[in-house]
């Protein structure tokens, strides 16, 4: 399980994230709701080691992984599909995906098997595997980004706004893929603007505002909450 305790991250004098507590139990899909700039991306960046926390503690299966460099966090089983995707635009789709398994590059057979799994999840990528990642549509690039994170065989998958800027039909495909990934037993922490669709596939959720957790609950609790309905579900 993932246990984040009292996490604080400051850029300059202002805290982007303050005293945040989040847990993800084994096999859970947990969603983070919040407006732009609420601190969700900062939480993700800190979990995957791109940003160092100012205070707090991050534990994965009881092991302290606080402040671990990003390339070490992957080895602990944390894969981050970041905001903006961060693909390698001139490399082929296949190479982008294979690089996702960089930490286990010596096991060629496992790499190929996982590549096959990603192609099963996103069949369109099989046809595009030799195209440069930068030449794909936004939705397909998002699939590459999710697939690349999966190639690391993560225990915890961090998905930051995977449906941002995608057409409604593609959003559905991506969320369906996330649901299937979750079914395989991977812990998923998902940030989503599309709150209703995210809650539908989630077990639990947190509402983040101004860098703090202001509310938490199960899917049904959040769906019924007037505060969530008003701010995020547009009821």
């Amino acid at each position: 399980m993932l246990r984040v305790s009292e996490l604080t991250v400051r850029y300059g004098p202002n805290p982007a994230v303050q005293g945040v507590n989040i847990t993800v139990d084994n096999g859970e899909l947990v969603v983070l709701l919040g407006a732009n700039g609420a601190g969700k991306s900062t939480i993700f960046r800190t979990l995957s080691g791109l940003t160092r926390p100012t205070a707090g503690r991050i534990e994965l299966f009881g092991k302290d992984v606080t402040g671990l460099a990003a390339h070490r966090a992957v080895r602990e089983g944390i894969a981050h599909c970041p905001e903006g995707r961060m693909l390698f635009p001139q490399l082929s789709v296949q190479k982008n995906l294979l690089l996702g398994a960089y930490t286990e590059r010596r096991d060629k057979r496992a790499m190929q098997a996982r590549l096959e799994q990603v192609f099963e999840l996103f069949p369109v990528l099989r046809d595009k595997q030799h195209a440069p990642a930068g030449s794909l549509s936004g939705g397909q690039q998002q699939m590459v980004a999710i697939g690349r994170a999966l190639m690391a065989n993560p225990r915890l998958l961090l998905l930051d706004e995977p449906s941002l800027g995608l057409a409604p039909l593609v959003v559905e495909q991506v969320l369906e893929a996330i649901r299937r990934i979750h079914e395989t037993g991977v812990m998923v922490l998902l940030a989503e603007q599309n709150a209703r669709a995210a809650l539908e596939i989630a077990d639990r959720g947190y509402v983040i505002e101004n860098g703090r957790v202001v509310m938490e609950g199960t899917r049904d609790e959040l769906l019924r909450s007037p505060r969530v309905q008003e701010a995020y579900l547009g009821v």
Binding site: S48, G49, L50, A69, A70, H71, V74, R75, A79, H80, P82, R85, M86, L87, F88, P89, Q90, L91, L99, G100, A101, Y102, T103, R148, A149, M151, A152
Partner: peptide, 12 residues
């Protein structure tokens, strides 16, 4: 091509 992206996949 992407320094942070490379870190995220575990490239030192």
């Amino acid at each position: 091509q992407h320094r942070e992206g490379a870190l995220l996949v575990g490239i030192p």
